[in-house]
């Protein structure tokens, strides 16, 4: 059943995950009330109000922006993961594992250290810094990992780990040198989507819209690139241009994900992999499906993170790592005999 109408199914799951995420928290608010509060916000709609004002404030000022930021982050991670996997023709390429997420994190933290955002304009600079960090990292990882015309699995992961560790260390160094902001930056690094309020959401949105449109346009390029660069050229693709487009796109979406939520691992690995197993390898479908699925998956992980040790909240990165690391090892073992890749 889920094979036939993936967009409807994933859309429904995403909707439920969104409602759950808004409803859950220290104060439980019934889903019906959540929907009432949201509908009440629409212009010219008068909804019979039967909730205290504090509920509306919790929903609109705290949970809704948090939920949207998490949804954007999950979508960006899974979308860029699918693109990197297609680009490197490698099931283990994910923004976290190949070090791009750490590079983007360094870019974001650098911008924050020199110019802590005071207004919305300040927030807009952060994804840009992350984007530059991601591009530099991917260029370094790619040139280190490449042997002749191919990018083997082992060198890709090794150079990803090396560069990722290096940029993480630089990030820590920057953080330790900016005392008053240490707490903020540290929780950022732990991947808790700790930036709150509407400003991070508003600052992410324009980058995200551009990133998603570009990701969807990458689908056909990635399909042709699956035959290898040589055959792609013989089939008529402008290979260099296509690769450049995909790298810029995936780095931009990684930057969006990392900017306000820190480095969250494994969503970009697991979601595209599952989508490929269930719905096949056509990247024109795989990418939008990964975007929907990534959004839902991170929302659900975030819900878990909020209820496991309630009333405290776990950084969502810990939940994705706990679930993702075993999955990563499973793929690593399977990859040798992978027929559907």
């Amino acid at each position: 059943m889920i094979h036939k109408q993936p967009f409807i199914w994933l859309g429904a799951i995403l909707f439920l995950a969104l409602v759950f995420s808004v409803a859950l928290g220290a104060v439980y608010i019934q889903p019906a009330t959540v929907i009432g509060i949201l509908v009440d916000q629409l212009p010219r709609v008068e909804f019979p109000k039967d909730w205290p004002d504090s509920f509306a404030a919790i929903i609109l000022k705290v949970r809704l922006p948090h939920t949207i930021l998490i949804a954007i982050t999950g979508a960006a991670l899974a979308g860029s993961g699918a693109a990197y996997q297609g680009l490197f023709r490698n099931p283990l390429a994910d923004p976290y594992i190949i070090g791009v997420a750490s590079g983007a994190g360094l870019g974001a933290v650098t911008v924050m250290t020199f110019n802590w955002p005071r207004d919305l304009l300040g927030y807009y600079w952060i994804p840009l810094g992350a984007f530059v960090g991601a591009l530099i990292t991917i260029a370094a990882v790619y040139s280190l990992a490449r042997i002749g015309r191919i990018v083997p699995l082992t060198t890709l992961i090794l150079s990803g780990v090396a560069i990722g560790t290096f940029t993480s260390a630089l990030t820590s160094f920057l953080m330790l040198n900016s005392n008053d902001r240490i707490y903020r930056a540290l929780s950022f690094l732990l991947g808790g989507a700790s930036m709150s309020g509407w400003q991070p959401v508003m600052a992410s949105l324009p980058y995200m819209v551009v990133g998603v449109v570009m990701l969807v346009f990458s689908g056909h390029y990635l399909n042709v690139l699956q035959f290898g660069e040589e055959q792609a050229k013989q089939l008529g693709l402008s290979v260099e241009r296509a690769k450049f487009f995909v790298i810029v796109t995936a780095s931009l979406t990684t930057a969006v994900a990392v900017s306000f939520s820190g480095v969250i691992g494994f969503i970009g690995l697991i979601v595209p992999h599952l989508a490929r197993m269930i719905w096949g390898a056509d990247y024109r479908r795989l990418i939008p499906l990964s975007i929907l699925g990534g959004s839902s998956a991170l929302l659900l992980a975030d819900v878990l993170a909020r209820i496991i040790i309630a009333p405290q909240t776990l950084p969502v990165g810990i939940v994705t790592a706990l679930a993702g690391a075993p999955f990563f090892l499973w793929i690593l073992r399977r990859a040798k005999s992978e027929v559907f890749w």
Partner: peptide, 30 residues
């Protein structure tokens, strides 16, 4: 060009593979 035998993108179906022969005739959305 029919290249020397090498593993094809395993996850594509035969029809998808042959259709990608039309890359040079398709628009950029494929």
């Amino acid at each position: 060009v029919v290249p020397q035998a090498q593993p094809l993108g395993g996850a594509f179906t035969v029809e998808q593979t042959v259709l990608l022969g039309r890359t040079a005739h398709m628009n950029w959305l494929g």
